[in-house]
Design a protein around this nucleic acid. Structure first.
Lengths: 123, 123
DNA sequence: TTACGTGCAAAATCTTTGCCCCTGA
DNA sequence: TCAGGGGCAAAGATTTTGCACGTAA
């Protein structure tokens, strides 16, 4: 439990967004200029393995990290590009029932417009 | 329509698997040793944009390409690591109904064991 | 002919790793 | 003390791109 690890964990926990490793690195650098990229990645992967954070792997985009360790889905806003939480239940069962396969896991990321971007943009 | 592009398209169409760019490159190299990696990527992306093939983007793994342009899902076998087709209907509606969002698209990849790997392995 | 595609190689992006030193318990 | 973690930098994996030349139409 070094100050670097604590810092990284804190950044993730305090952010309302889902940050990428790079974003976390830049944020960490502000508070601990000597921190190295390798350290950020090492700790991120470690914390994810230990279940303290969740690694969000999405197609074609850098991995992001989530303080919320309760399984849930995510969606990308096609307008602003941000990643949001999506509360979705029963996908696994849906897949199992339709295919008859024993689903071990899955990765789902949805693309749609977030609430903010759906608001009419005032002139 | 150069011979390189035809070759790449043919490799994808003749393969029963879903090949990665690297695999396609090696295969192409056998028949056209002078072909360059850049050419393979360029053509793959071009053909995907034009709708001649499908780009399969999955979390944490290299992009693969599919001759089947009819939308469908894929799953990875957790045993042998191969990528297979998965016929699944109504996922989009399932997501829309549960979330009330206007789903523009999604990426889903499932992890389970393929039929072959589920067979008891003879000694 | 001539514009588009190719080959080559460098670069860009994202992530991991080896190695040696430092630090926290 | 001393082992695990950090810093640095190089390497790895995948993909893109600039440029000059070749080739199909």
């Amino acid at each position: 439990m070094t100050k670097q690890r604590k810092l990284i964990h804190q950044i993730i926990c305090l952010s309302p967004m889902h940050l990428s490793a790079e974003e976390i690195y830049f944020e960490a650098k502000k508070q601990c200029p000597s921190i190295a990229v390798g350290t950020v990645y090492r700790n991120l992967n470690l914390m994810a393995e230990e279940g303290q954070i969740t690694k969000i792997e999405t197609a074609g985009q850098p991995v992001r990290f989530d303080k919320n360790v309760i399984p849930h889905e995510h969606f990308f806003c096609t307008d602003c590009g941000r990643l949001f939480d999506l509360d979705l239940k029963g996908i696994k069962e849906f897949i199992s029932e339709q295919t008859g396969m024993d689903v071990e896991g899955y990765t789902l990321s949805v693309r749609c417009r977030c609430a903010e971007c759906r608001l009419p943009k005032g002139a």
